[in-house]
Design a protein around this nucleic acid. Structure first.
Lengths: 300, 300
DNA sequence: TACGTTGTGCTCAGTCCGAGAAGAACGGCG
DNA sequence: CGCCGTTCTTCTCGGACTGAGCACAACGTA
């Protein structure tokens, strides 16, 4: 129920009294915040928008963008959209993109463990956003301390846990390409967990929803779309089969009738362009291959 | 972020000041509640646990069981489990069932529109529970006003909206069997929406997760499992193909080696018994048939 | 005992998917 | 300008899976 009105064993008078006693204003307060896991594709790899914390706790750490829900003024979806716009500078830079629905925003989950913030009990509603490649947040705005980070640079293990304790010792393929940072970035609060949940969600969502198009500009090619799937799933896909499959799913993409101006950077013919169709679900789904290995990993 | 600590354009002193100004204690308070969509199977049809409201608003209406999150004392999962136990009388009746993990509880979503409760801004974290057939909530306990209701008796359209306005005019198959109530029960607050989201979730979840077993006792037969799918999806399934499919998915069910004591109520041989396997996902998934019709309905 | 019901297993045809390959268009380089 | 490697697109083929129907045996009930 929204705010409780129960207690059936007594009359309505005691009911009113009990309700008054439960007025949260008189009790330990709870803060409600909205955090956003904003994902985009840059240079073929998945990036997440982070802000640098300027105050303790976790001062200097990177965290998901977010802020308080404005009580009585806005719903959760509005708050998430507002936070994202403030942090990316989207409001001025490319508001047209938002209007064109080139940005997907959905609720991810809510995190409310009492000890997740040392100051007080904070309930955070996390949102997941997919965006096409956006410009860097401009300095001089709210978003000065915000930046896109490659997901592979981040430490997604549970907090502060050493690799030997509990978690499998392998690096999970995050550092095989030898990126710059020797130790992966740790995130503030339980944001590593939230980000990990967001990544699970986006990986699953690409299978049965056409949301991969949200990572691309309005017009795109099938190889562009394949690059999204390959980046999110971290797997190479068979170009021919992917092409056949995408075109066979009704409502996934619609042809524009034209092609790209030039071929690929390393040669190859021009590709036909498409834009997103009107389907909200993919039937049949675009299942990802070699799920058996994933099965084994999850069963452990 | 959990509680904001940003504002990069000024120094840390202004930071502190700003943080203090955002202390939610000083602002309009927000209440956080936890509501539970508890589903079970009774006589072959899906039922949901509801409580009757004893106080305005929506006095006399049925609502989802729920209550306030106890600030600083419990997380969201704990609060949901507590509410469910209080409302069903599970704590005394069949705690063994809970211990055996015969009850599935997962977060469904969070609802925080400012006007969803007329008294104040209430953010509700909804949970979804699957349970085997539980006894009726006993009178004389917290759960006196609680009861299991067939889902098909409820009005799941958006609030107070007449069938002609906006929503399609068809009854969506909810009343074809001519059940007792002439008009379907309306739920308090936005609980019809929450329940509808829960139903969507459970229907989708049966496809790729083995959670159908959460609706059954520890030992069950394949026809029992088929009955769960048929009730949730509201579709008849092919017995032979269902049997083949369930046994072919690794980790879905494990044979106990024995059979039922008697045949079916209307004849037929004894069935072999199984219990849930250790798989957390179904590979390959158990896709539901005739999704094309669903496609059309969702495309509208 | 007869009959309808149902669990379990089988067959068969259609569809889908992974893998490979071919043809054509393109960029870059000598 | 011609060659070569790259890549978009289409095609083929064999295996796997799915939906539909059927068979048979075991069971409850009349």
């Amino acid at each position: 129920m929204a705010a409780d009105g129960r207690q059936p064993s007594t009359g309505p008078e005691a009911e009113q009294e009990w309700l008054a006693a439960y007025d949260p204003r008189a009790y330990t307060p709870i803060a409600v915040t909205v955090d956003v896991v904003a994902l985009t594709l840059r240079q073929g790899s998945l990036h997440v928008l982070l802000v640098e914390r300027g105050a303790p706790p976790y001062q200097g750490c990177w965290a998901l963008p977010g802020g308080f829900l404005r009580a009585g003024e806005e719903g959760l979806d509005e708050a998430a959209a507002r936070e994202l716009a403030e942090e990316t500078g989207l409001h001025s830079a490319s508001e047209a993109e938002v209007r064109r629905c080139r940005l997907h925003l959905e609720q991810l989950g809510t995190y409310g463990a009492p000890e997740r913030d040392p100051r007080m009990h904070v309930v955070s509603v996390a949102y997941l956003a997919f965006a096409p490649d956006l410009p860097d947040p401009q300095a001089g705005t709210d978003a000065a301390a915000a930046a896109w980070h490659p997901v592979s640079d981040l430490d997604l293990r549970p907090h502060g846990r050493s690799p030997a304790a509990g978690a499998p010792a392998d690096t999970h393929g995050g550092g095989v390409d030898g990126r710059t940072g020797p130790d992966p970035l740790a995130l503030a609060f339980d944001h590593a967990r939230i980000l990990a949940d967001g990544l699970d969600r986006v990986r699953a969502k690409l299978e049965y929803s056409p949301l991969a198009t949200a990572f691309l500009p309005y017009d795109f090619t099938i190889p562009d779309l394949r690059a999204v799937y390959e980046a999110v799933w971290d797997e190479k896909l068979h170009p021919g089969n992917f092409h056949r499959k995408v075109l066979s799913v009704p409502g996934f993409v619609e042809s524009t009738g034209s092609t790209t101006e030039r071929g690929g950077a390393r040669g190859g013919p021009r590709a036909r362009t498409y834009h997103a169709g009107d389907a909200r679900q993919l039937h049949p789904a675009l299942l990802r291959p070699t799920r058996d290995a994933v099965d084994d990993a999850e069963a452990r």
